[in-house]
């Protein structure tokens, strides 16, 4: 009865996908610009503490100017008992006993010094000004943080940052 009659089966035209690469590239560039590279995958688990009115460390050029160290419970639970108070320190993915632990002494100081010596020449700030960011688990005992602080003081690295997640209030 209808005026327009479908004459038999008509094939659906395929969707033109020639602009798909463009779209995907756009997405790709967005993510390349909007994100920063993960420094490393810490071998200790860290649940950050929260705080507000923090300083944003992102402007420090892709994090390479900031040295990160992680303090938390080791992911390998069997090893936890080896460490002081059950917390381990992760320096560039090498798990260390906490500062005055059984295995190493001055691990943090040595690590910081090595890091500083290996900095490329374009970074001119003296060791006192190079930020060391401590990412500690919220349950970590503060005593350990002060142990780290003391070791940094020993090598004259005098700027420390206590990492927290900003709750934005």
């Amino acid at each position: 009865m209808s005026k327009f009659k479908k004459d038999g089966k008509r094939a659906m035209p395929g969707v033109n996908t020639s602009s798909l690469p463009d779209i995907v590239f756009m997405l790709l560039f967005f993510f390349m610009v909007a994100t920063t590279s993960k420094e490393n995958d810490p071998t200790v688990s860290v649940t950050p503490a929260v705080g507000s009115r923090t300083t944003d460390l992102t402007p420090y050029k892709q994090r390479s100017e900031v040295d990160f160290l992680y303090l938390g419970e080791p992911r390998n639970k069997n090893r936890a008992k080896d460490f002081k108070m059950g917390y381990a320190l992760s320096l560039d993915n090498v798990v260390q006993a906490t500062p005055d632990g059984l295995y190493t002494t001055n691990a943090v100081g040595q690590w910081k010094k090595d890091k500083f010596d290996q900095k490329p020449a374009r970074m001119t700030s003296p060791i006192e000004a190079v930020i060391t960011c401590v990412k500690a688990d919220k349950t970590a005992p503060t005593g350990l943080i002060f142990d780290i602080r003391k070791e940094l003081q020993e090598v004259n690295a005098l700027t420390i940052a206590y990492a927290v997640r900003d709750n934005g209030i």
């Binding site: 996908t17 798909l20 690469p21 995907v24 590239f25 997405l27 790709l28 993510f31 390349m32 909007a34 994100t35 920063t36 590279s37 993960k38 705080g51 923090t54 300083t55 944003d56 460390l57 992102t58 994090r63 900031v66 930020i131 960011c133 602080r149 940094l152 003081q153 020993e154 004259n156 690295a157 005098l158 700027t159 420390i160 940052a161 206590y162 990492a163 927290v164 997640r165 900003d166």
Partner: peptide, 30 residues
């Protein structure tokens, strides 16, 4: 498109969105 997708996924996996926020303090000289 496949190549671009691969790249995209690589960047998605290796980067993070979250900012690093912290309290910056100075340690007194020894």
């Amino acid at each position: 498109a496949d190549i671009a997708f691969l790249l995209l996924i690589f960047f998605l996996v290796t980067t993070t969105m979250d900012k690093d926020t912290a309290f910056v303090r100075s340690i007194p000289k020894k």
